[in-house]
Simulated scan of single mutants.
Amino acid sequence: MTTTHAPVYASPADVAAFGPYGPGRTDRPGPLYPFQGRITADGSGGHPAEPGRYHLYAAYVCPWAQRAAIVRDLAGLKDVVSLSYVDDERDARGWAFRERRGPDPVNGFALLAEAYDATEPGYPGHISVPVLWDRRTNRIVSNNYPDIPVDLGTRFAEWADSGVDLYPEDLREEIEALDEEIARDLAHGVHGVARAATQEEYERRRGEVLAALDRLDARLADRRYLFGDRLTESDVQLWVVLVRYDLLHNPLAGIGERPLTDYPNLWPYARDLYRLPAFRETTDFAALRLTTRPAYRGDGPVRIAVEPREADWDEPHGRAAPTGQGR
């Protein structure tokens, strides 16, 4: 006899009652992402690649979580690694499960903090997504966001359903170098502009982001993807920043007067990737819109005013499709 339990949901996010997320969690000494287990094909380290064993907790609002979700789908792992989403809003309790995004299908938790406490009782630190959960040991494998997409993209080839090779051996060193550049200058860069406390820091940091956008726009002038005709993890990392730029990052931080839609190569490139189900189906534009100003935005600088920009992501991109890729 199968017993069906009612879904468990957290109460609505309430900053007035619980306080904002961050203080006491993200400002503690020690690593911000302390769970750093790795999936391996041979099981060394205790986490062998197996179908049905692992679950990915993600959030539509988080670019790092979306990056992992996209890699999972591109790698052909929808039936190998399960996926669920936390709610878009959080208070001091951290990420939670609410009706908007559905319940926790694995553990029935109301708060993602329960997964952290199950792994380390009394866990005091940052409650982040993505989280890779091991159903067999009932513990977190990793919340270290740079590692999770790598493991999803490389460790499950035996069970992948005709997935794309996002880490081809001959490009791995170049992919790692470009990933580091994108993370430094864009993924972390946009947040650095938002957090800038002085006018000098603000101008320097936004100049670095704008220079990176110009550099990557030029790189894409004569190629479909960052490494030519082959879609790689670097494209995923860049795209999750681009899809948030006009709705979130630029209006929040005041980075530049030029929207993504004015970049002659980045904008068609971003729309080209959006045509792929892995990118489209993991995107909810409602979750990406700037609704309130987060507490971390620095108040010192005088920022340029940028309005959120709604764009037509379904507009034809006009880029050539190499044989066997991107369709």
Score class of each variant (00 low, 15 high):
residue 1 M to W: 03
residue 3 T to P: 07
residue 5 H to R: 08
residue 6 A to E: 15
residue 11 S to T: 14
residue 11 S to C: 08
residue 12 P to I: 14
residue 13 A to L: 08
residue 17 A to Q: 07
residue 21 Y to I: 14
residue 23 P to M: 13
residue 23 P to F: 12
residue 24 G to S: 04
residue 25 R to S: 10
residue 30 G to M: 04
residue 31 P to E: 14
residue 33 Y to W: 10
residue 33 Y to M: 09
residue 33 Y to G: 07
residue 36 Q to R: 13
residue 37 G to M: 09
residue 44 S to W: 02
residue 46 G to D: 01
residue 48 P to L: 03
residue 50 E to C: 13
residue 50 E to M: 11
residue 52 G to N: 01
residue 55 H to V: 13
residue 57 Y to W: 06
residue 58 A to F: 15
residue 60 Y to T: 14
residue 66 Q to W: 00
residue 68 A to L: 08
residue 76 G to R: 03
residue 81 V to L: 00
residue 95 W to E: 00
residue 98 R to C: 07
residue 105 P to S: 13
residue 107 N to I: 12
residue 108 G to E: 03
residue 111 L to I: 04
residue 111 L to T: 03
residue 113 A to Q: 11
residue 116 Y to H: 00
residue 119 T to F: 00
residue 121 P to I: 05
residue 124 P to E: 14
residue 126 H to K: 07
residue 130 P to K: 06
residue 131 V to A: 09
residue 132 L to Q: 07
residue 132 L to P: 11
residue 137 T to P: 01
residue 138 N to M: 05
residue 142 S to L: 13
residue 143 N to E: 09
residue 148 I to F: 04
residue 150 V to T: 09
residue 150 V to L: 12
residue 151 D to H: 10
residue 152 L to P: 02
residue 155 R to N: 11
residue 160 A to H: 02
residue 161 D to I: 06
residue 161 D to K: 02
residue 162 S to F: 02
residue 174 E to P: 06
residue 176 E to F: 14
residue 180 E to N: 13
residue 182 I to M: 08
residue 184 R to D: 12
residue 192 G to T: 06
residue 198 T to N: 10
residue 198 T to Y: 03
residue 199 Q to L: 05
residue 199 Q to T: 07
residue 200 E to C: 07
residue 200 E to V: 14
residue 200 E to I: 11
residue 205 R to L: 15
residue 207 G to M: 02
residue 215 R to I: 02
residue 215 R to S: 11
residue 222 D to T: 14
residue 227 F to V: 06
residue 227 F to I: 02
residue 230 R to Q: 15
residue 233 E to A: 15
residue 233 E to Q: 09
residue 237 Q to D: 15
residue 238 L to I: 03
residue 239 W to V: 11
residue 240 V to M: 04
residue 240 V to G: 01
residue 241 V to D: 09
residue 244 R to C: 06
residue 245 Y to N: 01
residue 246 D to A: 10
residue 249 H to C: 08
residue 250 N to I: 12
residue 255 I to G: 09
residue 258 R to A: 08
residue 259 P to Q: 09
residue 260 L to C: 03
residue 261 T to H: 00
residue 262 D to P: 00
residue 271 R to E: 10
residue 272 D to W: 04
residue 274 Y to D: 04
residue 281 E to K: 07
residue 282 T to W: 06
residue 285 F to V: 03
residue 286 A to T: 14
residue 292 T to G: 01
residue 301 P to G: 05
residue 302 V to G: 01
residue 302 V to Q: 03
residue 303 R to S: 00
residue 307 E to A: 15
residue 308 P to W: 01
residue 309 R to K: 11
residue 312 D to G: 04
residue 314 D to C: 06
residue 315 E to K: 14
residue 317 H to L: 06
residue 322 P to W: 07
residue 324 G to F: 01
residue 324 G to N: 02
residue 327 R to Q: 11
